[in-house]
Computed example of a mutant assay.
Amino acid sequence: MQTFRSKIDWWFWGVVIATTGLLLQFLWTMYVKGTMQEYPEHAAVYLFTIVLLWWPIFNTRYIVTENDLIIHSMLFKWKINKADIIKISASNHLISSPALSLDRLRIDYAKNGNVTHILVSPKDQKAFCLALEHDLTK
C-alpha cells in the first residue's frame, strides 16, 4: 500500500492563509470589543470556516493498494479498482475534484459499464502512475 499526498498550488495556500488570517482578525476584534458573548454564532461560523479551509490540506490523499485506488478528500471517498482504469492523462482542468493543484492527472475508468473520470493531483505523478501500473498519456 502506498499513500500519495496532493500537490498544493501556491495560490491555494494564499487563499487559505489569507482567509484564515481575515477570520482570525474578525475573532480577535470580537474578543477585544467584548462582542463574542453577544454573537457566539458568528464566532462559531468563523471557526467552522477555518476548519473547512484547512481540512482538505490535511485530508486529501490517494492510496494505492494491491487492487484499488482509494481517494480521500474531506468527507468524500472514491474506490476505483485498478483493473477498471483505462488511461491516465495530464490535465489542468478547473472542474471541482479531489485535487489541490491545477497540475492534475485525469483518470479515466469504467464504472457500472460506463466510462467516467476523476481528477487528482499527486505530488509525485511518476511514482503514482507506477504504483497504478499505468503510463501517463500525453
Rank of each mutant, 00 (worst) to 15 (best):
P40W: 05
N112D: 08
F12Q: 00
W78C: 08
M36S: 11
L105F: 09
N59L: 06
I88N: 11
Y109L: 08
C129F: 15
H93C: 03
K33I: 04
N114P: 00
L100R: 10
M30I: 01
Y39I: 09
F76R: 14
V120H: 09
R61T: 00
W13T: 01
G14W: 05
A18D: 02
K138F: 02
A83W: 06
T20D: 06
D84G: 00
Y39H: 10
L100C: 15
L27N: 07
Y39A: 10
T65A: 04
S89N: 12
G21H: 10
T49E: 11
T3R: 13
T3C: 06
L52C: 11
A99S: 15
I86W: 06
W55Q: 03
D84M: 09
S121K: 05
L24S: 12
L136R: 00
I86V: 15
A83K: 14
K111R: 13
D103A: 02
R104V: 03
D135T: 10
V115K: 01
F12G: 00
L132V: 12
V120S: 11
A131D: 13
W54K: 12
L105W: 04
V45G: 02
R106G: 04
Q125R: 13
T3P: 04
T3Q: 14
A18Q: 00
F4V: 01
L130K: 15
D124E: 14
L53F: 14
G34R: 09
K77A: 04
N92Q: 02
Y39L: 03
E133K: 09
K87T: 03
S73C: 14
D103I: 02
S96E: 14
L132C: 10
V45F: 15
L23A: 03
K123G: 13
N67M: 07
I85F: 05
L94N: 15
L119D: 04
L22N: 05
A99H: 08
L100T: 08
T35I: 06
K77D: 05
Y62W: 06
